[in-house]
Design a protein around this nucleic acid. Structure first.
Length: 582
DNA sequence: GCCGTTTTCGGCCCGACTGTTTTCAGTCG
């Protein structure tokens, strides 16, 4: 069982315990464990096999939870979870996922009205039975109704790119251990979409025995929950707690064409086939053909070339104009993870981060960065113990000391500044003027009214001391939609002032979405790739931020932290001369 | 359920917001 599935199980256990009325701290222990499991970075499965005692070294994992992790890794579940699950109808867990319904209210609905699923709830609302309940007024019922409608529209389960990556990496490692097989992941995973519904794995092998071996090896993968289909060159399985995986085996001379076909996107492929048709060619997953003769197919490069196109990076294959650029040999030279020279959004344990200032610096240095901005929360974010002027200056004094000792690395004095109700900022100008870098974010009170949110963000972007807008849309994938926002207006403000927009690679955020980043880039906005790291291991999420940038078609020169510190400072200085605002 | 010790129990982050109350409960982050 891979880490995301184990984590999901522990999260569900926490839900069940809440329904069961367990002590909140016990619930919290499971939630905390789920988070730790997600963040740990290496598969716990391997740890359990080699040295299970080390599990209790993880923060918040004691003897009991370590045992449950071990049980989960080996059996796919743990007894306490099974027992508690049997105690409640499965629909209650779905009710729990509806925004505005917590464990207390779900339990109340179940106990008093015997509602055990979203459908039950829908019916009860229609019959007007909810208003009988204490604590449910007209407004609450209306809100629930809205949420129910939304939930009905999004049935398909999608996985975060970062989670999909864990399943894909483990599976590719397993399949690739067989040396004769060339194995790759295709599909939306290869295109680095922010969420992935299933994994497509492509294997190149000689037809016959080698191909059969590949399928056999695949369906014997220990992490499989169910084999859905199995043939000679194709198989589908569902992974335990994970996505469906489709495997296709093709011969080496078909490999490039098949890789293109299974990478998609569908619309990109359709456009390619039209181009082939116009050239009197036929493109399929088996190759590019003139009549019966295969003119290309072994590599993607030769297929694209025969179509008169440059090779197109998978991240761009969304039929958003990339084919025309490829025809004109004008594709952008996309930014890569190697270009990134520093991290500009990271928290420490001074607020809600898990690691100390020194540990974060150490982590950033290990990644080969030259600079790191410590952007803890400002005071408005009370739940994270946000910094006021005094504590921020204390942190900056520590940073000065640290910088004096560091060689070839610079810690930037920074802050993640909260944007208040009308666009005011959470710290006075004289403090901000001393900062090396300021990222302003909206955390509280996002309005249903587009104009309110737009005004707040635009006001912040226009402020002379704000260098970047953090996670601009506020989306949390699968949990919270972007708040209503006139994005064009925000872009206009950024164009005016040189304010950067953040591409936040935190797996649940992936904010800005790539299509918005592309739209902003077209108007000349510049960006920063960052992770919003709250722990040392989170610094690794930079590759997801870079994925957004690549999907948006950005080059190195459009990403502020893909340059040296000197270049960055020059850009920020140019942007933010100190002009006190009244 | 974890953790640390003031060392085997007692504390564990807590304030804002919403809708519902009329002094608060539930949810969220």
């Amino acid at each position: 069982m891979e880490n995301p599935a184990i984590a999901a199980l522990f999260d569900e256990m926490a839900d069940l315990l809440e329904l069961d009325g367990a002590l909140v701290f016990r619930v919290r222990a499971y939630r905390n464990a789920a988070r730790v499991i997600r963040d740990v970075g290496s598969p716990l499965r391997e740890l359990v096999e080699t040295d299970p005692k080390q599990l209790t070294e993880l923060p918040g994992i004691g003897k009991d939870l370590a045992g449950k992790i071990q049980e989960t890794v080996t059996t796919g579940d743990f007894a306490d979870h099974r027992d508690l699950r049997a105690k409640f109808p499965p629909g209650l867990l779905e009710l729990l996922r509806i925004q505005g319904l917590g464990p207390k209210r779900v339990k109340q609905l179940y106990d008093e009205l015997h509602l055990a699923s979203p459908d039950d709830l829908r019916a009860a609302i229609a019959q007007g039975r909810l208003v009988e309940l204490r604590g449910f007024g007209q407004r609450s019922v209306e809100k629930l109704q809205e949420q129910l409608e939304k939930a009905g529209a999004t049935a398909e389960r999608r996985f975060l790119l970062a989670d999909a990556e864990q399943w894909a990496t483990a599976l590719l490692k397993y399949l690739g251990a067989e040396k004769r097989l060339r194995v790759e992941a295709a599909g939306s995973y290869r295109r680095r979409r922010e969420t992935v519904a299933d994994l497509d794995i492509l294997v190149a092998a000689e037809p016959g025995e080698a191909a059969g071996d590949a399928v056999t090896r695949f369906v014997r993968y220990p992490e499989i929950q169910e084999v859905l289909a199995q043939g000679e060159t194709k198989a589908s399985v569902r992974l335990r707690g994970g996505p469906q995986v489709d495997l296709r085996v093709v011969s080496p001379e078909e490999h490039g064409a098949a890789l293109m076909y299974f990478t998609g996107s569908k619309q990109h492929n359709i456009e390619l086939r039209k181009i082939a048709q116009a050239k009197d060619l036929k493109l399929s997953e088996y190759g590019l053909f003139r009549g019966e003769r295969r003119v290309a197919g072994a590599t993607e490069e030769e297929v694209y070339a025969e179509l008169g196109l440059d090779w197109i990076p998978p991240e761009l294959r969304e039929a958003r104009g990339e084919i025309e650029l490829a025809a004109r040999h004008a594709l952008p030279d996309l930014v890569t993870l190697d270009h990134i020279q520093g991290e500009l959004h990271a928290h420490t344990n001074a607020t809600d981060g898990k690691a100390s200032l020194e540990e974060m610096v150490d982590g950033a240095r290990k990644l080969g960065y030259r600079y790191l901005a410590i952007t803890d929360h400002s005071k408005r974010v009370t739940m994270a113990l946000g910094l006021d002027e005094r504590r921020l200056r204390e942190q900056w004094a520590q940073i000065d000391e640290l910088n004096a000792r560091l060689d070839g690395f610079t810690v930037l004095k920074s802050i993640e500044l909260d944007i208040l109700d009308h666009g005011e900022l959470d710290l006075p100008d004289d403090v901000l003027a001393e900062a090396d870098y300021v990222v302003a974010s909206l955390h509280y009170g996002a309005s249903k009214r587009e104009a309110d949110n737009t005004k707040r963000l635009v006001t912040a972007a226009l402020h002379p001391h704000v260098d970047a807008i953090g996670h601009p849309t506020g989306q949390l994938l699968g949990r919270r939609d972007p708040y209503p926002l006139d994005f064009d207006e925000l872009v206009a403000a950024c164009v005016d002032t040189g304010c950067l927009l953040e591409l936040n690679g935190s797996p649940e955020r992936m904010d800005l979405p790539d299509h918005l980043a592309a739209a902003a880039a077209a108007r000349g906005v510049r960006f920063v790739c960052s992770t919003d790291a709250h722990a040392v291991s989170h610094l690794d999420a930079m590759r997801y931020a870079v994925s957004i940038a690549r999907r948006a078609g950005l080059t190195k020169s459009q990403v502020a932290n893909a340059g040296s510190l000197a270049q960055l400072r020059k850009e920020l200085k140019h942007r933010s001369p100190y002009r006190p605002t009244q």
